[in-house]
Design a protein around this nucleic acid. Structure first.
Lengths: 237, 237
DNA sequence: GCATATTTGTCCGTATGTATA
DNA sequence: CTATACATACGGACAAATATG
């Protein structure tokens, strides 16, 4: 019933690449690695060794290195010259910047969403999904729904480039989530707040919804920073 | 007095990589290629051939391919499976999205800049530089100053991630500039408008400055779209 | 539509340099 | 300081896909 702990990143990836795509091998390798990182199967800070990964995925080291370059530009891994690539560890500074960016860009998204019934309906469905997931204790799904909710806000801006940036930003946020154990405490409070925001939107109370959004973002940042501090304290005594 | 036309991307790059850095060879190769693209020495649509580039830069094909993967993630080049990599050609759709994004994010930047004398001073210096460059007919520098001006606005938001996105966005914009011949018509009108914006900021008229910024962005978009249409008409008769 | 040449995609072996135990 | 493990980079090889005549 418990999740299987991976003994090494290579173990976690063994035999899990589906080679039947329409993309190049290095892109598929990147996809496989990316998936395992965002799923938390490879923890932040872990080193990705070329040889082990190449063996696990059944590809050459050159191919793996090409995948590394792409993932490095995405910000998921960090390339250290002559030392290798490591899964990014988001710092306190990163979290602060991420939430500064969210506080800057999500309110305009919410105001854009306010004028669109279709978007509001989508938000409602996402929150409903989060509520049922929370009822069954599926906190991973609750976290995914939370991200989907706020991604939808940004999506309402109709900016492809902004969406791309937020995809990366949320991927980094998942990296921060990954080092925090208590998934319930991390995600539970925000189901209610997203529901509240949606109700306000349905009622046309846009300003109040923005206020709620701002409080949400400040509280979430504080909580993650606190958890991050705790993690650092335990892992580096 | 005229710029030397490169016969091929490989010719343009020959012997121009400085190998004495603290970064990997593939990163230096990427830097060299990136520089030549943003400088307009390699035109949008041009294909970058692995073997030719490898020979020109004196590196192996594998190294070039690693550089390609990074540049591809940056959006400067496009990787087409089994066909190769090409310098990105920004489409009408791209330009529309770029300006939608700018109209969304630069006004908050301007409001943030309004409260900071240091930022306003920096903007003033940039415009002054643009004015002297315009006086000597150095339209390339005028264009660079224009981008620096608006980059400074975004910079005032203090968001690293937002800055990174705008760096990419402006790099794409340079790609659009590259296909337009009349550099003077492209950049001259905006020196005055940036000056006007700065004057308004110095006087504390933030709302008026925002209005001017919005008009700037709408006019610039219209002009680039018009020029892009003209280019497509002439290159594809 | 076909045969050919070119280019990319991928793999392998190897030599060199760097960081760390 | 030496030894080891690993990343870096090269060059050659071949298959597969694409472009060319």
């Amino acid at each position: 019933m418990r999740s299987v702990p991976a003994h090494s990143p290579a173990d976690a990836l063994a035999g899990l690449m589906t080679l039947a795509g329409r993309s190049s091998t290095s892109e598929q390798a990147a996809d496989a690695i990316r998936q395992h990182i965002t799923d938390g199967r490879i923890r932040p800070g872990a080193q990705l060794r070329e040889e082990a990964l190449a063996a696990a995925l059944g590809v050459s080291r050159n191919t793996i290195r090409e995948a590394f370059r792409a993932l490095s530009r995405e910000g998921l891994v960090e390339h250290v010259l002559h030392r290798g690539v490591f899964v990014r560890e988001v710092s306190v500074r990163d979290v602060e910047d991420i939430y500064r960016t969210r506080r800057l860009l999500e309110p305009p998204g919410l105001r854009a969403a306010a004028g669109r019934p279709a978007v509001i309906r989508a938000l409602d469905e996402i929150v409903t999904g989060a509520e049922t997931a929370a009822a069954t204790g599926d906190w991973a799904s609750v976290g995914t729904a939370d991200i989907a909710f706020h991604r939808s806000l940004v999506d309402a801006c109709d900016s492809l480039r902004l969406n791309r940036m937020f995809d990366q930003l949320f991927a980094e946020l998942r990296l921060a989530f990954a080092v925090i154990d208590e998934a319930r405490a991390l995600h539970e409070p925000y189901v209610l707040r997203n529901r509240h925001m949606t109700t306000l939107l349905v009622g046309g109370a846009v300003d109040e919804a923005c206020g709620e959004l701002d409080r949400y973002l400040r509280d979430a940042e504080r909580q993650i920073l606190g958890a991050l501090d705790g993690e650092q304290a335990t892992s580096r005594p």
